[in-house]
Computed example of a mutant assay.
Amino acid sequence: MAIWNGRVLNLCILWLLVSIVLLNGIDCHSRKKKLPKPCRNLVLYFHDIIYNGKNAGNATSTLVAAPQGANLTIMTGNYHFGDLAVFDDPITVDNNLHSPPVGRAQGFYFYDMKNTFSAWLGFTFVLNSTDYKGTITFGGADPILAKYRDISVVGGTGDFLMARGIATIDTDAYEGDVYFRLRVNITLYECY
């Protein structure tokens, strides 16, 4: 029985050594995956007007949750940590808030860092115009102080059925705690 256990142990060690030698020759990181050519690119703007307790008539977003004891109508804390906002913002093809909208940006963002401005975004562009019909869904981290930030395009419907890609966003305009405009450069790599 001891001889049998010794042979099994020797075979296991031999198998392990052969596996290491064979796998060592395979370098998974030496070949970089080449991205396919983008199948679609578009640039849209969305305009967020934050409810501040006085602008209910034209506000397109509002805080719905905040840390214990915070005032929900006025953003609190240096970096708004813990604040959760929902929005239903107009989308335009140029940076003018008063341009005819091509759809709505609907979703939420929450501030997720205590020591700098950072948020996590989850939203959908609901598009209904002569040029675009359907939805594009986005999700990802938004380190707000960076000039350009990439978030994932995770799906879509209609003209954007099952779309996948990257959206590069930048804060195109900012007016205190009341208004900001995001420029969203959408590059799709999967289009159906």
Results as ranks from 00 to 15, higher is better:
residue 39 C to V: 09
residue 40 R to Q: 14
residue 80 H to C: 03
residue 99 S to R: 06
residue 56 A to L: 11
residue 71 N to Y: 10
residue 20 I to S: 12
residue 180 F to Q: 10
residue 95 N to C: 08
residue 125 F to Y: 13
residue 108 F to S: 08
residue 177 D to R: 08
residue 189 Y to S: 04
residue 109 Y to H: 12
residue 169 I to M: 10
residue 101 P to Y: 06
residue 54 K to A: 07
residue 131 D to P: 01
residue 91 I to F: 03
residue 140 G to S: 06
residue 152 S to G: 03
residue 116 T to L: 08
residue 6 G to L: 11
residue 29 H to N: 14
residue 52 N to V: 10
residue 171 T to S: 05
residue 187 T to Q: 14
residue 40 R to D: 11
residue 55 N to L: 02
residue 48 D to W: 09
residue 105 A to K: 00
residue 138 F to S: 03
residue 68 Q to I: 10
residue 166 I to L: 12
residue 52 N to M: 04
residue 5 N to G: 05
residue 192 Y to W: 06
residue 10 N to R: 09
residue 43 V to T: 15
residue 161 L to A: 15
residue 146 A to N: 15
residue 33 K to N: 07
residue 98 H to A: 13
residue 123 F to A: 03
residue 43 V to R: 05
residue 8 V to F: 08
residue 192 Y to S: 11
residue 92 T to S: 01
residue 95 N to M: 09
residue 85 A to L: 15
residue 55 N to V: 01
residue 84 L to K: 04
residue 102 V to N: 00
residue 15 W to G: 11
residue 72 L to Y: 09
residue 170 D to H: 12
residue 125 F to W: 02
residue 34 K to P: 01
residue 47 H to L: 05
residue 47 H to N: 05
residue 21 V to Y: 09
residue 25 G to L: 10
residue 121 L to T: 03
residue 146 A to E: 14
residue 164 R to I: 13
residue 118 S to N: 15
residue 112 D to K: 13
residue 106 Q to C: 04
residue 136 I to L: 15
residue 39 C to A: 07
residue 69 G to T: 03
residue 160 F to T: 03
residue 156 G to N: 12
residue 58 N to L: 04
residue 52 N to I: 08
residue 148 Y to G: 02
residue 46 F to D: 07
residue 84 L to F: 11
residue 142 D to G: 02
residue 34 K to D: 11
residue 88 D to I: 00
residue 147 K to G: 00
residue 60 T to N: 06
residue 43 V to N: 01
residue 33 K to W: 02
residue 126 V to P: 01
residue 158 G to W: 11
residue 92 T to W: 01
residue 190 E to N: 13
residue 139 G to Y: 03
residue 153 V to G: 00
residue 78 N to V: 05
residue 67 P to N: 02
residue 29 H to D: 06
residue 107 G to P: 01
residue 96 N to H: 12
residue 101 P to M: 06
residue 142 D to H: 02
residue 7 R to S: 10
residue 95 N to F: 11
residue 176 G to N: 09
residue 76 T to A: 14
residue 56 A to H: 11
residue 94 D to V: 08
residue 40 R to P: 00
residue 145 L to Q: 13
residue 19 S to L: 09
residue 169 I to E: 02
residue 167 A to E: 03
residue 92 T to N: 03
residue 34 K to M: 12
residue 183 R to E: 05
residue 176 G to T: 14
residue 62 T to W: 00
residue 121 L to H: 06
residue 29 H to E: 05
residue 176 G to D: 13
residue 119 A to T: 15
residue 145 L to K: 12
residue 167 A to R: 01
residue 96 N to E: 10
residue 110 F to N: 14
residue 34 K to T: 15
residue 38 P to C: 07
residue 104 R to I: 09
residue 69 G to M: 02
residue 154 V to Q: 07
residue 161 L to H: 15
residue 109 Y to D: 05
residue 159 D to A: 10
residue 58 N to C: 02
residue 81 F to N: 02
residue 73 T to L: 05
residue 180 F to G: 03
residue 7 R to W: 11
residue 89 D to N: 15
residue 111 Y to S: 06
residue 20 I to D: 01
residue 153 V to C: 04
residue 166 I to G: 02
residue 14 L to Y: 10
residue 41 N to C: 04
residue 61 S to Q: 13
residue 27 D to L: 06
residue 59 A to C: 11
residue 43 V to Y: 02
residue 98 H to Q: 13
residue 110 F to L: 14
residue 180 F to I: 04
residue 71 N to Q: 09
residue 147 K to W: 03
residue 34 K to E: 13
